[in-house]
Amino acid sequence: MIEVRELTKRYGSATAVDRLSFEVGPGRVTGFLGPNGAGKSTTMRALLGLCAPASGAALVDGRPYASLRRPMTRVGALLDASAVHGGRTALNHLRWLARTNGIAQARVPAVLEQVGLAGVARRRVAGYSLGMRQRLGIAAALLGDPGVLIFDEPVNGLDPDGIRWIRGLMRDLAAGGRTVLLSSHLMSEMELTADRLVIIGRGRLIADTSVAELTARHGRGVLVRSPRADELAGMLAEAGAGVTADPGGALSVTGMEVDRIGDLAARNGIALYEVTPRGAGLEEAYMELTADSAEHRAITEGGGR
């Protein structure tokens, strides 16, 4: 269980996180989304007691992180995978970590095996690829078998195989009743992994919703192509759907599901060449939601926004 309450963090005159509140519950993967500079990492650092908020609170299991005894057995975190002493071997890195929290040394080879680094455990981390370092970071997070897991952009640097592995791991961890908070600036990644989404921009909460809700709310309707488009458009409008004709001759239908469109067409003997739900609007929905809050953005054609 993670609670962020009215969290505010300033760096000089810049407000990185602005009265941010949300909760992350167990048993599902919660995606923490926002453009670069939205305050995701700052929020996670506040949760782990690495930076002190100006006001508000970031709590894990109802308590500030710094007050937890043996915190790695309660919370596992991956912040910056490259932040490991390159001269140390993966084995030694995990061994000292385990020692700080009184975690049995037997857990070290176990998690190395779990993340697929057992074969290179005795090699210096300096020789690792970014993907291997991500795996090492995940191994460190899992070391204390914690109930709460916090991952900051864990798929960065992973190959497709690795990405698929992470997705499965996140889902397994959540299915086991753990609280999983996973940050990313890529909606496409979240779509496949997360159940819930917390979207922030410029340090403020933009949306706290489920993936299904967001899809429903921002769906772009159904694309319909037919040789008798004009006739069909009239019928669909009569049946209560919103219909607009696209320049290419296709119809954009909103407020009606694919099945009903098909039934209606069949009943009237109208052939359909294409009926495509435009559900992939999640990425667009996200862009739309965060459009005003992107911190860094290139000036688009024409110089305007």
Binding site: G49, P71, M72, L79, D80, S82, V84, H85, G86, L97
Partner: peptide, 18 residues
């Protein structure tokens, strides 16, 4: 200072927040 240079200090403080 090797911890600050490599970023290991973050891991150290997450492991031992006091």
């Amino acid at each position: 200072t090797s911890e600050y240079a490599t970023g290991t200090i973050t891991a150290s403080l997450v492991a031992v927040p006091r």
